[in-house]
């Protein structure tokens, strides 16, 4: 969620900070003496609870381990088994599907909403309403979303039955699609807010000029809105990539009243890790194997973020 906010800008900010390194004032010199004492507690926690565990995950991934006995070295075998494990491959495919399909849909809807919201009355209220699901517990959203599509008593199911006469079994037949649409619903408000902030910086006269020149709505979007919000979209894409890989609760809670994980068809990588260690009615405790899939996940985040920043980098447009 919001905790994903913007690794992307950090680099930019760092460079700015360095550039502003002025000649040392007495204040700056004395402040430097406090640098290490000030960051020490945070740094210690960060090293112990992030950096250490990341390295440990890599180390454990080359072993067979149930978390209790001794680690049993097995080289890259865990990784080889992963490539043959259809549960892992399907979870991975679902993760990518959420990343790409839900991502593209979310951005498309967010842009469409932005274009409409820009010129309508009550925009602030509507935007606030659309944003709200983003700060509600994903477990709650999952329960509510599930109830809309329940068969036969769900709110949308009964509506559908009233109009068409038949009663679909959405949660049984198309659970993953229902989940994906739900994810779009949850995330749209957040990304609309970001994109709107980008669009609001575009001078209005650009739109007036293009309207005089007879540009259609699509042409205005394609040649004004999109290029001038590109850097915001690029940052938002990085945020989405990071947060989409972290999605867990919204899918997990679809296990609902079964006292178990949801069916493996709807797992993503995060659920796969949980399912092969602590989760389910009979926990597997395959720490080595799950660590291997965790390392794959981490590599995917890293590669995707670097790729995205590279692909979406463009000359800054001044306006």
């Amino acid at each position: 969620m919001a905790v994903a906010s913007a690794t992307a800008v950090a680099g930019r900010r760092v460079r700015r900070a360095q550039a502003s390194a002025a000649p040392l004032t007495p204040l700056a010199r004395r402040r430097r003496a406090l640098f290490w004492p000030f960051i020490a507690p945070a740094l210690a926690l960060y090293l112990v609870f992030f950096v250490g565990p990341v390295l440990a995950s890599v180390w454990i991934s080359f072993h067979r381990w149930d978390g209790v006995g001794a680690l049993e070295p097995r080289g890259v075998q865990n990784y080889e088994i992963l490539l043959d494990d259809s549960t892992f491959l399907d979870s991975f495919a679902n993760t990518m599907l959420i990343l790409v399909v839900v991502g593209v849909a979310t951005f498309a809807v967010s842009f469409a909403l932005t274009m409409v919201l820009r010129e309508m009355r009550g925009r602030k209220f509507v935007r606030a309403v659309l944003f709200f699901p983003y700060i509600v517990s994903p477990v709650v959203l999952s329960v509510l979303w599930g109830f809309l599509f329940r068969s036969p008593e769900g709110l949308l199911t009964t509506l559908w039955t009233g109009v068409t006469g038949n009663t679909p079994n959405w949660l049984g037949d198309n659970l993953f699609t229902v989940i994906c649409i739900g994810l779009i619903w949850v995330n749209t408000g957040f990304f609309t807010t970001i994109i709107m902030a980008g669009v609001d910086r575009i001078p209005a006269d650009l739109y007036e000029d293009s309207a005089l020149a007879g540009a259609t709505a699509w042409q205005r979007f394609r040649h004004i809105t999109l290029p001038l919000t590109w850097d915001v979209v690029a940052t938002a894409a990085v945020i989405w990539t990071i947060s989409s890989l972290k999605i867990f609760e919204f899918i997990y809670a679809f296990g609902g009243t079964t006292n178990d994980m949801p069916t493996v068809d709807v797992w993503n990588s995060a659920l796969f890790i949980y399912g092969s260690t602590f989760g389910g009615r009979n926990p597997q405790y395959q720490f080595g194997y799950a660590s291997a899939s965790a390392v794959v996940m981490l590599l995917v985040v890293g590669v995707l973020v670097v790729l995205l920043r590279r692909v979406m980098r463009r000359a800054q447009i001044q306006f």
């Binding site: 906010s5 609870f49 990071i242 972290k246 867990f248 990588s269 995060a270 890790i273 996940m297 985040v301």
Partner: peptide, 8 residues
């Protein structure tokens, strides 16, 4: 920020 908690 970019490290999913499931990884660690």
């Amino acid at each position: 920020i970019g490290i999913p908690v499931q990884v660690i």
